[in-house]
Design a protein around this nucleic acid. Structure first.
Lengths: 118, 118, 118, 118
DNA sequence: GTGGTCTAGACCACC
DNA sequence: GTGGTCTAGACCACA
């Protein structure tokens, strides 16, 4: 129960954010085609199209017709701030409220943080 | 993005956990019938059946034939530990790893915790 | 899953068969009233009515209006042969077929029989 | 008395166990879609959804989003051991106790076993 | 009254 | 195409 409910295209997006944050997809460079990436991730090209579409919507990558997809010039910085803002506003409040409901205190939280942060 | 994806029957389950944790549904007592609860929550009885079925699977409530559903004797305690374990094992690792990736440190986390915990 | 699905009135009937087979309800004697038995078994009188009705259908007990229920003269013998025939024709074939399907052999069956018979 | 009480969705589950045990649904392969199976079994798709849900809970099949259901890699072995354990723990004790109560001895049991096992 | 099951039909996200 | 969920309405055994 509740292992990985997220749609595949979002799971892949998470993975691509990592690639950008790690510098494996450097700022302003061309990234693999949808087709290649679909092969590499072993998913349907339609699914990869959705993933790229999502990143494009978020302004992290863009498309040059007939050439391919590219990261924007400050992709790394933008991804970082975008994900952080999104996380803090959309997820954190719910998470912390839940923790409080479950009777977790700051000591317990910090201990678990050290355990799980990586 | 990230509004409320959860199916209704699970959202109701979340609400019922609260009722149990708050003591509004005391340990070992009869809870409203599926039909009554469906009216109260303004959903179809089938949907409520799913919710009760979920709580029954988790061993928090049980059924007496022809009489109705009851919370188990230690429903409150069980719900609390069950939800906590579920949260710590299934959600926390991912959350904390994400926080670390986003460059959040303990100070920032604690500040946000105080802000959002309730 | 699958602990006790049987309707309560049948569960009680099983118990009453035992009483008869054990001689605790001797042949031809009066048995407790529906009302008393319902109190004793802690069930709704309607439920006990069903149970007595079932035994009456099977010709093991009968009713004298205004007086009460009685076991028939050869209740013990009749119960025994009736239950045995019922069991052999209705349940055994399915059970043995299932055992065979699950790859159980006679040795295993006999070992389990000795373990569980009582 | 004792015709077929089991709900349809469980009867179908029984049938699917057979398909797996017989190798008609080989390990690790895709099985028919809910809709197709519903047509084939002449039931409502909702009913088939319940059946597949049951098998999924038991860890015999799993779902790939948007693609369909698959048997797990060792579906046959798992189904066999699961059904056998379930049978031995939940049904056998009661059955053998009953047999003993009815005065059946090992000879009689074995004779009936040979008669009915297939 | 209670819950359990089934059908029919619909909508949706996802692949 | 796939499954997941929801509604509406019905029937049934059971207490």
């Amino acid at each position: 129960m509740q292992y990985d409910n997220k749609p595949i295209y979002k799971q892949i997006a998470e993975y691509l954010y990592e690639l950008i944050l790690n510098g494996e997809w450097p700022d302003g460079e061309r990234i693999p085609s949808i087709r290649d990436m679909a092969v590499q991730m072993e998913v349907n090209p339609n699914t990869m199209t959705r993933t790229y579409g999502l990143l494009q919507e978020q302004g992290i990558i863009y498309n040059r017709r007939g050439i391919g997809y590219f990261t924007i010039m400050d992709a790394r910085e933008k991804t970082s701030s975008l994900k952080k803002a999104e996380f803090i506003h959309n997820e954190l409040p719910e998470i912390f409220k839940k923790m409080d409901n479950l009777g977790m205190d700051t000591d317990e939280i910090l201990a678990l943080y050290d355990k799980y942060k990586n």
